[in-house]
Design a protein around this nucleic acid. Sequence first.
RNA 1: GGGCCUGUAGCUCAGUUGGUUAGAGCAGAGCGCUCAUAACGCUUUGGUCGUAGGUUCGAGUCCUACCGGGCCUACCA
Length: 567
Amino acid sequence: MARHLITSAIPYINGIKHLGNLVGSQLPADLFARYQRARGNEVLFLCATDEHGTPAELAAAKAGKPVAEYCAEMHDVQAKIAEGFGLSFDHFGRSSSAENQALTQHFAGKLADAGLIEEVDETQIYSKADGRFLPDRYIEGTCPNCGFEDARGDQCDNCTKQLDPTDLINPHSTISGSTDLEERATKHLYLKQSQLRDTLQDWINTKTDWPVLTTSIANKWLNDGDGLQDRGITRDLDWGVPVKRGTQDWPGMEGKVFYVWFDAPIEYIACSQEWASGDEWQRWWRTDKGAGDVTYTQFMGKDNVPFHTLSFPATILGSGEPWKLVDYIKSFNYLNYEGGQFSTSRGRGVFMDQALEILPADIWRWWLLSNCPETSDAEFTWEGFQSGVNKDLSDVLGNFVSRVTKFCRSKFGETVPKAGTYGPEEDALIAELTKRIRAYEGHMEAMDVRKSAQELRAIWALGNEYLQDAAPWTLFKTDPDQAAAQIRLALNLIRLYAVLSAPFMPTTSAKLFVAMNSLDTSWPDDVTAALGSLAPGHEFSVPDNLFAKITDEEREGWAERFSGIRD
RNA sequence: GGGCCUGUAGCUCAGUUGGUUAGAGCAGAGCGCUCAUAACGCUUUGGUCGUAGGUUCGAGUCCUACCGGGCCUACCA
């Protein structure tokens, strides 16, 4: 039995995520986790909220709450929505946990012991009105290059020139608008990633099967300009993991916290400590404690790739301790919304809570996964969504279940008919099913999400093709026994579909198991045997229609409702 | 500015190391079926593969230039 450690990029705490965030990390990770469990493998699937950093502090202030309270509430909100989407985390943790705090400090201590931490004196912009140091992006002013008035401190959005905050003319805080800014001396810890450059390059070079998107971003950072740069891992903030060297105070670093991107990936490990009782987590993370046979897969959007291919591995490798390194990084492009971008800050697009208000989770799961942005950015349009969902789910799968169960009820009652035997047509179907199921498995193992969905859909369609060819409604008049055998097979197909479709649509799958009155969720390694699961005489019930069609009126209403800023 | 990705039928996308008449789903057209959510099945119409050159016996696939779209560029996360 294989062992799979699976983590999804951890969503930031400051608000509800949109569908683009969902499809870029949590949803495909859940698909993979559910599939591996269905194949009988041991899975630990982890996710958490990423709670530190300036935006969290500002969001809390805006909500008029202490940041700890705000984060606790938002964590619960995100956890509930995740549950609504059927995300099957073994644990949904928090980067602000005591476990992560201790582990982050531990790693910092080990890195310092290894000579990989440097203390750097520097100056940063301080805003007296805001009472805080400002990250470059929170300072705006006039671009010295093109005269654009709303240039950010790191880059001008108009002429794309890279800037330093001190370059700006008439700089002001984007938080308060205050122009009372000054340069202040401060000291920070830098992780000397440059010393690990060759180690990281050698490691990345072995990952020939990773998505191009993943390795090309990593190589860019490793080789651009002077190569991998050292990186500041502390900030002058109140909310975060206090800077300590292991359990010891760090002289000169009082009142400072670790940078959110330093502690966030460590939460993957800490999350397992939150989940586990005792040392159970170690057999997933420590190669000296039984994690040697673990396959570790991470899922994330492309914006997260540098931190997962370089920063976090630098932390792991630099510690000199036997931690498990990631084996495969599945990265995604972005999902666009009706010709533009989903935007959290501007409230553009459909957000996870809104999605669940208007349609069941499985419908979203199916469309998002079968259209996920694997090779390039993908496009959400209401028309495409409507036609895709109606065709695939209502017409191909839903209607198949409906026609089979209702025909059986009217001719044979709500029991699997006993008469008749299988012949060449059934053998041909089984051969075709076997071929396609093996292909489906291959795509799922490879995490080819769109291809997996395409194959699954083709497997559903085989049922309709078979029925049309067999035509039990005609045969019933002359050879009812043969029609009975055909319907027996078709009923078994429904159970088979419930098994195969479960990773994509867990709720629908569960409904089918209930209707078929079956507890047999075993994977169809032998398709012939799987199609004998529901024995002659087995009772079942006719389910309600699985998927209501999306009407034109609904589609138009939603397109209108979600055309602007979220309410 | 630099780097990476991308441009294939009306739409959304597949096209393995260059190899015969370029594929799928949806949409369109025709036929069939009537068990079913007017659902299903079969057949079929659509493409000089962004443009222009080049390499090759052979290019959607490799090279160059150009045009269009996107992302990243290290202090947002």
